[in-house]
Design a protein around this nucleic acid. Sequence first.
DNA 1: ACAAAAGTGTTGACTTTACACCCATGG
DNA 2: CCATGGGTGTAAAGTCAACACTTTTGT
Lengths: 224, 224
Amino acid sequence: MEKNNPLYKNQGIHLLAAIFTIEKGVAKVLLVKRKCEPYKNMWSLPGGALYNDEDLLDGLQREIKEKTGLTNIELDLCNVYGNKNRSKIMRMVGISFLGVISSNKIDSYKETLKTSNCAWFEIEDIPDLAYDHNLIINDSLEKLKKKILNSNILKSLFPQGFTLPELQKAYEIILNKKFDRRNFRRKILSLGLIYDTLKEVNFEGKKKAKLYKFKDKIEDKNVF
Amino acid sequence: MEKNNPLYKNQGIHLLAAIFTIEKGVAKVLLVKRKCEPYKNMWSLPGGALYNDEDLLDGLQREIKEKTGLTNIELDLCNVYGNKNRSKIMRMVGISFLGVISSNKIDSYKETLKTSNCAWFEIEDIPDLAYDHNLIINDSLEKLKKKILNSNILKSLFPQGFTLPELQKAYEIILNKKFDRRNFRRKILSLGLIYDTLKEVNFEGKKKAKLYKFKDKIEDKNVF
DNA sequence: ACAAAAGTGTTGACTTTACACCCATGG
DNA sequence: CCATGGGTGTAAAGTCAACACTTTTGT
């Protein structure tokens, strides 16, 4: 490994975050409008280049904060995009991450975002994006659909917890499928992802509903 | 994005492959002995720096070929290692991949490998490796345990197909668990990963056993 | 008192588990 | 002819899907 070997000099790492939320029954993804070339004025995923002197996950959080104002987003590795021509200016390898954030606090987020030229786009209605970001969003959504079945990735959607009818709606929106109320309840409880807080709150009905939360640690299910 | 911005100049991408096989009933991983600094003479995962002018997956195959002589290995993205101090010479982000190769052809592989200072190490008996490669192997093994339950990742273990008793042994070795013969059979068939070729071959018994193969395309199972 | 949403129980169909027997063949 | 491994069937337990009724409470 030589520091100035031209074979691998001047590469960069592009960190990208596909951040989803659900607002008024619709799944949305957070995009930012680019202020500079290349792809000036096009929408793109929030993200940017990793710096030399920071850990990768720190760089990811820094970029998200710079581009959107959001801090402390929980993100999972999603995919790597390494086509040599994906960026025109210099060789950039893209590393994408997947996150979900609160629907409760969406209005306060909006305040933050306004100053940064960010907006939520319905996932059914995403414009042509910079780079290969349309592809990245598709891959991320696929991953999200899988992760909600065996992880607590939706925890950040409901920082204060959720009722089962509320959670069911979220699953139905993300998976684009309807479920029987009674069977959903049994199923989701049997997956071992959530627990009953023994509190009750109002959701849509007049009757109070039990408040659940995602566990912090999910143990793997054995297929065999 | 500026080509000479010192904030993100001179980063590199380190491509790494955790390649597993099963030989004589034992899971093994392929390691190479380093010929140069840093970590000279220590064992490490095969891999190396991505070049500017090649696609990431091409670079991965090139590195594997250079380091081990093996070509055309099927690999899946596994994880990303982006700690700023993981390499001493220059900033390197590690991207790890997971692969499995044939136990049938292991002897011919060994010929190839001999010239390259490679060897198979039992996964229970791995020495201290260069960089963070011990960690990477652990992560890769965890991923392998998950992937054999819902993908055809073991396809390359059995390029000519396999009998069910043979496959069962592979699963038992990787998952470190024993299964009932009849139930394993039903289970693995119900997972939809393999199909009956209608041919028969000899494995360990005197009686011929049906030859199965992994499907090329696995459709996702719905949890809901 | 009723509408609207939350919560629960049951039955029949299907799966899973645990187990025992027959089959083919090389020595 | 028998030891060895390959293949199959079944009954009891458990899980899943489909379905209807009761509870709570704001109006």
